[in-house]
Structures are given as structure tokens and as C-alpha cells.
Computed example of a mutant assay.
Amino acid sequence: MSVVEQYARAHIVKDTDVTVLEERGAVPVVLRYDPDIDPRAIRVGLPGPHEWTFSRSLLEQGLRAPAGNGEVRVWPCGRVQAVVEFHSSQGVEVVQFDSKALLRFLRRTYIAAAQPVAH
């Protein structure tokens, strides 16, 4: 199975920030899927050393309706945006994506997962 890695632009705000999401510039975020490590999980790499791992199904559910599991929550924001919220002991990070980028990434992960394993 093949690894999927996709870069997306997102707006990030931490609970220590006072700036509204729309006032900040977009930053690069990397979306990763490695079925050899865990075929049910995806990773989101934020700028700096921050990387979050959570279920692919949580992302899919959260694009349609609010969903959450433990430290990660996902919900649609209007017709073209989605929000992913990460909770840790250091605080909360809210990441706003274009939904199309997340849907494209999910489609690529399902294609990768369906590929036969080479022997």
C-alpha cells in the first residue's frame, strides 16, 4: 500500500492568540496517511513540531456534521470550510481548512488503501 501525503493551506489560531482566524495568513499543513502504520488513522502536521494522529473516519464524519473523539473535534463551517480542533495540555489549536482539500485527501487515502499489497 502506498503512503499519501498532501499539503494544504489552513488558518490556525491557538487559545493564546487574540487574532481572529480571518485576519491571519494561511500556513502550510501536511496531511499524511500511511496504511502500513495504521490503515484507519491519518496524521495532520502543523507548523513546528506539532503532529496529530486521529481516525480517518472522524475526519470523514466531521465534514458532514460535528464529530469528536478525545482530543480532536471536527465540524463543517459553512459550505466550503471545515474546522479541526486539537486539545492538549498546552492548550487548544483551531485549524480551518477548505473542505475540498480534506475531501481530496480522503479520496486519495481510500484509493491507497484499496491498492493490493505487492509481494
Results as ranks from 00 to 15, higher is better:
Arg24Ala: 13
Glu60His: 14
Thr109Arg: 02
Ser89Leu: 12
Leu21Pro: 15
Trp75Arg: 15
Gln6Val: 13
Thr19Tyr: 01
Val20Thr: 13
Asn69Cys: 14
Val83Lys: 12
Ala10Arg: 02
Gln90Asp: 13
Arg43Tyr: 02
Phe54Leu: 09
Leu106Cys: 06
Val4Gly: 06
Asp98Ala: 14
Phe86Lys: 02
Ala8Asn: 06
Pro47Phe: 01
Asp17Ala: 06
Pro47Ile: 01
Tyr7Trp: 10
Lys100Ser: 13
Ala26Thr: 15
Asp15Ser: 10
Asn69Gln: 15
His119Val: 08
Ser88His: 06
Tyr33Pro: 10
Arg9Trp: 12
Ala118Tyr: 01
Gly70Tyr: 09
Arg9His: 14
Asp34Cys: 01
Asp38Gly: 04
Thr16Lys: 00
Gly62His: 06
Gln90Leu: 11
Leu102Ile: 05
Pro47Trp: 06
Val95Gln: 04
Leu31Ser: 03
Gly78Lys: 06
Pro35Ile: 02
Phe86Arg: 01
Val29Tyr: 10
Ser99His: 06
Met1Pro: 07
Arg79Ala: 11
Val27Lys: 05
Ala10Trp: 05
Arg107Cys: 09
Val20Ser: 12
Asn69Gly: 11
Glu23Tyr: 05
Leu63Phe: 03
Ser88Leu: 01
Thr16Arg: 05
Ser99Leu: 10
Arg108His: 08
Ala65Phe: 08
Glu22His: 04
Val44Thr: 12
Arg32Asp: 01
Arg56Ala: 09
Gly91Asp: 03
Glu23Trp: 02
Asp34Lys: 01
Val117Leu: 13
Ile37Glu: 12
Ala112Pro: 03
Cys77Arg: 07
Gln61Tyr: 02
Lys100Gly: 09
Glu22Asn: 07
Leu59Gly: 01
Val84Arg: 02
Ile12Glu: 01
Glu5Thr: 13
Arg43Cys: 04
Arg79Gly: 09
Glu23Gly: 09
Ile42Trp: 05
Glu51Arg: 09
Ala112Lys: 01
Gln115Trp: 09
Arg43Asn: 06
Val117Cys: 05
Ala67Lys: 07
His87Arg: 15
Ser55His: 06
Gly45Glu: 15
Ser88Pro: 07
Val30Phe: 00
Ile111Pro: 00
Trp75Leu: 12
Leu102Ala: 05
Thr109Phe: 04
Ala26Arg: 15
Gln96His: 03
Asp34Ile: 04
Tyr7Ala: 12
Gln81Ala: 13
Gln81Lys: 10
Gly91Tyr: 11
Val20Lys: 11
Ser88Asn: 05
Ala82His: 04
Ala67Arg: 10
Thr109Trp: 02
Leu59Trp: 03
Leu59Gln: 08
Asp38Met: 02
Gly45Cys: 13
Gly62Ser: 06
Val92Glu: 05
Gly91Phe: 10
Lys14Arg: 14
Asp36Pro: 01
Ile12Asp: 04
Cys77Gly: 00
Gly91Ile: 03
Gln61Cys: 00
Gln81Glu: 14
Pro28Gln: 04
Phe97Pro: 11
Arg64Phe: 07
Arg64Gly: 13
Arg40Cys: 11
Val92Phe: 00
Val13Trp: 08
Pro66Phe: 09
Val74Pro: 05
Gln6Cys: 09
Val72Leu: 02
Asp34Trp: 03
Glu5Met: 04
Gln90Pro: 00
Val44Gly: 00
Val18Leu: 14
Leu46Gln: 02
Glu22Gly: 07
Arg73Val: 12
Arg43His: 05
Ser55Leu: 11
Lys14Trp: 07
Leu103Ser: 12
His87Gly: 05
Ala114Cys: 14
Gln90Asn: 10
Gly45Ser: 13
